Amino acid sequence: MNYKILMVDDDRELLKMLNQYFTLKNYTVMIAENGIEAMEKISANPDIILLDVNMPGMDGIEVCRRIRDMVSIFLTAKVEEQDRVMGLLSGGDDYVLKPFSLKELDARIIAHLKREERLHRKKEQRFYGELVIDYASKCVHIKGNALELTKLEYEIIEFLSMNPEMVFDKERIYEKIGGYDAEGDSRVVTELIRRIRKKMKMYSEHEYIATVWGRGYKWAK
């Protein structure tokens, strides 16, 4: 399959290098030098987006907030934990620090694309009382109300619900939703689960994601 990849960065030399590499890898490559230009090219429905965090005008974080349904990998020289947490909570799927290995970046991209393909092949729906999870459309409803979830929020629900009553620590959860060679980030998982619970509580008092103190979280039927 010929995947479409949108690369967004204000570093023209980096874009040139990435364009040459991924074109040779048989990707259809689209390029944008800022967030505004990226938003104009979203209509082409790229399969994955590489986003620089620091760009003039509309930065990568803001672009990601507006395109939550697409797979996004941040490319950045920032190394602060808070920056990484903010990027992932904004809807990003992965975080790659500059300078990076092209082979590693390629491996991360492939891992995310293959995971998306597996998710699209799922046709099953599961019912937990007043809650319904549609794994094909990646939607969650409670009493007929659709929850507005980010990609990572949905993926936590999917992972836990497909392994009911099994306890997973924060690092294991992050590894499962973070893609290739993901390092566990407990702050991200804690915040995502807090947000999920808040959204669920708008329609139900049932606690679907239970805390198992000292061990992690589980899906409670």
Rank of each mutant, 00 (worst) to 15 (best):
D181Q: 15
G178S: 10
A136R: 13
Y135G: 05
I177M: 11
L160M: 09
I157D: 05
I133L: 01
M162S: 08
E175T: 13
S161W: 02
E153Y: 06
M166S: 12
G179C: 06
G179Y: 10
N163S: 15
V132E: 13
Y174K: 04
L160C: 04
I157L: 14
L160W: 04
D169Q: 00
G179T: 13
L160H: 04
I142N: 13
G179D: 11
K143F: 09
L131H: 06
V140H: 02
P164E: 09
P164T: 03
E155V: 10
S137M: 12
A136E: 10
S161D: 07
A136I: 00
P164N: 08
A136H: 14
Y135P: 04
Y135N: 09
V132M: 15
I157C: 14
I173D: 05
M166W: 15
K151R: 13
L131N: 05
V167D: 04
G179I: 11
E171I: 06
I177T: 15
E158K: 15
G178K: 05
Y154P: 03
E158M: 14
E171S: 10
S161E: 08
L152G: 07
K138G: 03
D181F: 10
E158V: 10
G179E: 08
A182K: 02
T150F: 05
Y135R: 11
E155F: 14
I157T: 12
H141I: 08
D169C: 02
A136W: 02
Y154N: 01
A136C: 06
G179Q: 08
L147E: 05
K176V: 03
E148F: 00
G144T: 13
G129F: 11
V140K: 00
L131W: 03
S161K: 02
Y135M: 05
